[in-house]
Design a protein around this nucleic acid. Structure first.
Lengths: 138, 138
DNA sequence: AAATTATACCACCAAACCAGTAGGTAAGTC
DNA sequence: GACTTACCTACTGGTTTGGTGGTATAATTT
């Protein structure tokens, strides 16, 4: 049931960028150090985010990454689906799943389907803005 | 995010026992064949369930397994926690987790905690009885 | 142009986990 | 004693996880 480090680290990096969004482009070296994460490892995750226009990357001296949208437009659900692949609880519900022979008579399928929806709705209802605001209140 | 086969198979075996609960003790050989599961594999899962008094096992000819409680007392949550270990989305929330240094300032911890509770509540709100009754209606 | 800084790409690796197998033992029935 | 069934221990092959190392490439400064 675990969310892997890929998704969690992506979230932490984005939150770090959000907390320092006045600083222009921020090199991953700085974020990695600040968050105590492996530089190499998050470097491997970032392209996924920049390709999907969540962040802008700029090369060279003075470069780094920067958020490309207002905080309220970053849904945790999108970030997790992007980095985790998908949030399906059973293989039958994965995007590329082949139809299950037992689907019609499966007593558990409706439970998994509803659960899947609940998970997506939950994470889609939370934005980076929410996370930063509720930091202390919750 | 996947629920592993351990939890899903356990659920399927219990549902099979439920659907045939008039037949006395049912050998795993029969269930495995009926459900299309590996006999050896489910044999390895069952002791967990019998040790925790979800089922009664009887050796020898005419033996097998039998549910030990009314269907309404089998919460899916209990079954999954037993077979999966736990349903925590992040290692920080696992039962045996060592306290995280960043816990106090972690902007995502409340989100995971609430999610964890939501997951447990969801599966605790569903019993084997529910699953069998809603089979067609949902 | 050289040096620096940083993204992007690729191959590799150790450990853990997953799904399942193999073989044997304990307990019960006929 | 033969047979059946639960139960236990150990192993295995494959995949995933969480990385590391090296290099190419692109942008910027001096």
């Amino acid at each position: 049931m675990l969310i892997s480090t890929r998704g969690r680290y992506a979230l932490r990096v984005l939150l770090d960028l959000a907390e320092h969004k006045g600083d222009g482009y921020i090199p991953m070296k700085v974020v990695a150090e600040r968050q105590g994460l492996s530089l190499k490892y998050i470097q491997a995750i970032m392209p996924t985010l920049s390709k999907n226009n969540l962040i802008e990357g700029v090369h060279g001296k003075g470069g780094g990454y920067r958020l490309s949208k207002p905080l309220s437009e970053y849904r945790v659900g999108d970030i997790l689906r992007l980095t985790e692949g998908n949030l399906a609880p059973v293989t039958c519900l994965e995007c590329d799943a082949k139809p299950c022979v037992r689907a019609d008579s499966c007593p558990t399928l409706p439970m998994w389907t509803e659960f899947h929806k609940m998970v997506n709705d939950y994470f889609d209802g939370i934005t980076l803005e929410n996370l930063l605001n509720n930091k202390k209140s919750q």
